[in-house]
Simulated scan of single mutants.
Amino acid sequence: MTGKRIKIMASVLVAATVMTGCGTKIYEMTDEEQQLIVNYSAYVLSKHNIYQPDGMTSATESETEEQDTSTTETETKTADEKTSEKTSEKTSEKTDTGQENGNSGQSQQTAQETKPTMQTVSLAQAIGYEGLSVSYAGMTTQETYKEGSYYSMEAGAGNTYAVLKFTLSNTTGADMNVDLFTNTGKYRAAFSGGKEYEAEGSFLTYALNTFQGTIAAGQSVDVVLLFKVPQDTVCDSVTMSVEKDNVKNLIAL
């Protein structure tokens, strides 16, 4: 039926065209006839248009909702991942800080454990030889120190030696073998309340930190300690200490 109507309308169009050319009044189609021609034209175009499947399409409401839901889920996952990363970073920082604090605490504890105890004793007690008396005999300053005619030491430019003198006395009734080179500690001195200096390690035969020999019963030996200090150091007074066996002995001179 539709095909027949299409043929009729086509005939009408042809007749209208012919009549128009002859000055005849144009045939006026009804709305129904116009719609019929429009639909047929659209059908023909779509039948021969090979790109029709790629034409514009409109998404249904359900498809739009699914897309919005997918986008929301993706954004939520991304936010959760960022939050998780920040939480992990903070946890790592806290852990690192905790470890640093722990290491710092351990270091402080170790420093406290290794810090020597302090006590005030006589120099003889600090040296540790029973029956050996050690007396302080004064101090001088010298840029060059000489031991006899065979050995000398230079303090160097801008420096001088603070020379502390001592006397070792054997107070027993028997000879005493004394080894202060092997059985010794760290000798330090501060002058006029200033900086503390450590005694020079030297090849002197008669030094409090190098002496090795026998002291006969009732006899004495003179020894020294050398401290290299700047020439402008004030040496009006001296305080001394001996650190031995993790004990720092403050010496009463």
Score class of each variant (00 low, 15 high):
2 T>H: 09
5 R>S: 09
7 K>Y: 12
8 I>F: 15
10 A>H: 09
17 T>L: 12
20 T>N: 04
20 T>E: 05
20 T>H: 04
22 C>M: 12
23 G>F: 11
24 T>G: 10
25 K>W: 00
27 Y>V: 13
27 Y>L: 12
31 D>H: 14
34 Q>V: 07
34 Q>T: 08
35 Q>F: 13
35 Q>W: 13
37 I>V: 13
37 I>A: 10
41 S>H: 10
48 H>I: 14
48 H>P: 01
53 P>K: 07
53 P>M: 11
57 T>K: 04
58 S>I: 15
61 E>C: 09
61 E>Y: 14
62 S>M: 13
64 T>E: 14
64 T>C: 08
67 Q>L: 15
68 D>F: 11
69 T>V: 10
73 E>A: 12
77 K>G: 06
78 T>R: 14
78 T>Y: 14
80 D>L: 07
84 S>D: 14
85 E>T: 06
86 K>S: 02
87 T>H: 11
89 E>G: 01
93 E>P: 01
96 D>V: 15
96 D>H: 09
96 D>C: 09
97 T>C: 03
102 G>K: 01
105 G>A: 14
106 Q>A: 14
109 Q>I: 08
112 Q>R: 11
112 Q>H: 08
113 E>T: 10
117 T>D: 13
118 M>W: 12
119 Q>F: 02
121 V>C: 01
122 S>V: 00
123 L>C: 00
124 A>F: 03
125 Q>T: 13
127 I>K: 00
132 L>Q: 03
132 L>S: 07
132 L>W: 01
132 L>D: 07
136 Y>L: 08
136 Y>V: 05
137 A>M: 06
139 M>W: 05
142 Q>C: 02
147 E>I: 15
148 G>Y: 02
151 Y>D: 15
151 Y>F: 10
151 Y>R: 12
152 S>Q: 03
155 A>R: 04
160 T>S: 03
164 L>K: 01
165 K>A: 15
166 F>Q: 06
169 S>T: 12
172 T>V: 01
175 D>P: 07
175 D>M: 06
175 D>K: 10
176 M>D: 00
177 N>T: 09
181 F>M: 09
184 T>A: 08
185 G>S: 05
187 Y>P: 04
198 E>F: 02
202 S>G: 02
204 L>Y: 08
204 L>F: 06
205 T>Q: 06
206 Y>E: 14
210 T>V: 10
212 Q>H: 03
213 G>C: 02
214 T>M: 15
215 I>L: 08
216 A>F: 10
218 G>L: 02
221 V>M: 15
223 V>G: 03
225 L>P: 08
227 F>L: 07
228 K>Y: 08
232 D>F: 04
235 C>H: 01
238 V>D: 03
240 M>R: 03
243 E>I: 01
245 D>I: 00
252 A>D: 15
